[in-house]
Design a protein around this nucleic acid. Sequence first.
DNA 1: TTGAAAGCGCTAACAC
DNA 2: GTGTTAGCGCTTTCAA
Lengths: 339, 339
Amino acid sequence: MKKEKATIKDIAKYAGVSIATVSRYINKTRNLNPEVSGRIQAAIEHFNYIPNDNARALKSRNERIIGIIFPDITNAFFAKIFKILEELLFDHKIFLLLCNSNEDGEKEKEYLYRLLQKRVDAIVIAPTGLNPDLLSEVNKSTPVIIFDRNQPNIIADQLYANDFDSCYQLTQYILDRGHREVAYAIGAENSTAAQFRYAGFQKAMAENGVSPEHCHVLYSQDESACRQEFRELLLQDQISALLITSPKKLNWFLIERNQLCLKGHNPMLAFAGYATQNEFDICDIPLTGILQKEEVYASRLTKIILNRLEHPNGKVRISELNLPFRKGNSISRIDLRKD
Amino acid sequence: MKKEKATIKDIAKYAGVSIATVSRYINKTRNLNPEVSGRIQAAIEHFNYIPNDNARALKSRNERIIGIIFPDITNAFFAKIFKILEELLFDHKIFLLLCNSNEDGEKEKEYLYRLLQKRVDAIVIAPTGLNPDLLSEVNKSTPVIIFDRNQPNIIADQLYANDFDSCYQLTQYILDRGHREVAYAIGAENSTAAQFRYAGFQKAMAENGVSPEHCHVLYSQDESACRQEFRELLLQDQISALLITSPKKLNWFLIERNQLCLKGHNPMLAFAGYATQNEFDICDIPLTGILQKEEVYASRLTKIILNRLEHPNGKVRISELNLPFRKGNSISRIDLRKD
DNA sequence: TTGAAAGCGCTAACAC
DNA sequence: GTGTTAGCGCTTTCAA
C-alpha cells in the first residue's frame, strides 16, 4: 500500500504542540522556543512530513504555478524559451504547467479553462489567435501574458517582436539585390506574428512595384509537405529568392539544400529568413536573416512575469523586441532588370 | 483591479439553493429538478463561475497533475515524448508539470520535494541517477515511473530500452566490418542508459580482442566541445569509425559532417549510433544505427501511467523496449587486418 | 511564545 | 430532490 502522507496534525500531536505552532515553525513566521522547534523538527523527520501545497494555496490564494500555452514544444524555439524560463523561475519556486495548443483554437480554449480551474497565478500564452475575446475575459481575473504574437486589441501584458518592420526590412534587402520573383514561406495562418511579417513583406513588395503575381506564397505547415516544396524550389529557376519566416522551416530548408548539394547539385536559389543562432550556425554559407535570440526574449519575459506576479494590478506593459538584422550572403545579387 | 473569482457560495445564494445542490449540478452526481438546474446554470453564467480545483483536490486527494522530470526539454527526444504524452493524457484531463533536472542531482532532489508538496498523482522521471534512495523513498507514497534510464535497484514502474544489447549488437556490427580503432561518444555520465550502452560496447570490444587503448571515448557533453571533437575526428585518419550514443549528438555530428562535405572534404570516418527518425531522415547516406521511436516509447509510457493511476498499489511493471537495429551503409567495410 | 478557532472552496455522508 | 454539516490541511487572527 502507498503510505499515507502525514499532516500537520500528526506533527503537532507527536511534538506535543498545536498545529498553529507547527505552521509557524514551517513558515518561520514567528520566533519559537528553541526547545519546541527541536521537537517539531524531530517530528517532521520522524514522519517525513511534507506540507500540502494545495491546502496552503487554498488559504493564501497563491499557487506558485504558471500556466504556459505554447503551440508546440517540439519547436526548438519554444523549447528553448521554456527551458530558460524554467531556469530563471526556479529560484522563485514557481512551477510551470506546460500545455501545447497545437495551433488548435478549441484546445487552447479548453486549456485556458483548465488553468483557471487550477487557479494558476498567471498564464503565459503564444496565442493561436482564435480566442481573442476569451483572452481578454480571462485577463480580468488572472494575469495573461501574451508572448511572441501580438494581439492588438487585448489589453494585457504583451511581448512580441518587431515582425512587421523586420520583415519589411528583410524583403527590402532582397529586392535591393535585384530579386523580383520571390517565394515566401508563411507561418501558422492565425498567428499574428505570421500576419505582421506577411504584411511587412507585402508592403515592401508593393512599394517596389512588384505585383502580387510575383509573390509565391507557400502555405504548407507540416514538415513533409513543406520540405517537398523546398525541394521543388531548389530545382527550378523561375523563382530566384526564398524568404522563410520561421526558424523551424528554415532548418528544414537548410537540410534539404544540404542534401541536394551533396548529391552534386548547385542550387542557385537565394534565401533568407528568421533564424535562431542554431540556423546561423548550421548554414554553410553566411546566412542573411533576422536573428531570434531566445535568451533575450526569455529574460524579458521573465521580468514581465515576475513584475506581474508582484503587482497584479500594475500598469499593463506592451513591449516590442527589436530583432537584429544579420547580413550574410545567402541572398546573392542578381541582374537588376528594372524595366 | 483583478476580478475576484466567484465561489460556490455565490452561485448557491444567487440561485437560491444550497451549495450541495450546486456541487451536485457541477459534478452531475445526482439528478436535479430541471427548474433548479436552470437557475444554477444561469448563476454560473452570470458570475462566470469556475470551480476551484484546489479545493476539490483537497477533498478528493486527486490532483490530476503528473510531474515530469526530464534532463532537458530542448533535447528533441524528450520534447517529442512530452508532446505525445501530453496529447494522450489530454482527454484524461491530466496536467503535466514539466521540470528540467539539467542532469543536476540537487535540482532533481529539489523538484522531487516540490512535486510532493504539490501532491501530484504521479511522477515520471528520467533520473540523473544521483538520487536512487530518494526515488525509492518517494515511491512509497507517490507513484514514481522511471523512464528511459533503468535503475536496477529501485522497485517502481520502469520503462527503458535494451541499451546493453542494442549497443553490443551495434558495436559487433562495426567490428565485423573490420574497424578496430573506434571512437565512442558517451552520454551523460550518471545516466544508466549511457552506462549500459557503454557496457555493451565494452563487452563487444573485449570479445573481439580489441584492447582498451583502441577505444577512444569522447566525454564532452556540451554542444560546442562535442562538435569540436567531431570536427577533429572527421579530419584525422587514425580512427576509422565513430559510435554516437545519443540522437542529439548524432545530429550535431551530421551537421558538422555536412559542412565539411560542402567545403569539399571527403571524410572517410564511418559512423553509426542511436537516432530518432529525424536523424535517419537528414543523413545523406543511409544511416546504420538503432532507432529510438518516440511514438512507441510514449504510448507505452502512457499506458503505464494510466494503469498506475488506476491501481496505485498494483504490481510494479518493469519493461524493456526493444529498439530496432537499422542497417544502412554509414559503416563502411574496411580491410580486415586480423593479425 | 503559544493555543483555540474560524475559514479558504469544495465534497459527501446523513437527514428530511 | 434538496439542505445541513463535517472536514480535507493549512494559515491567521485573536486571546491568553
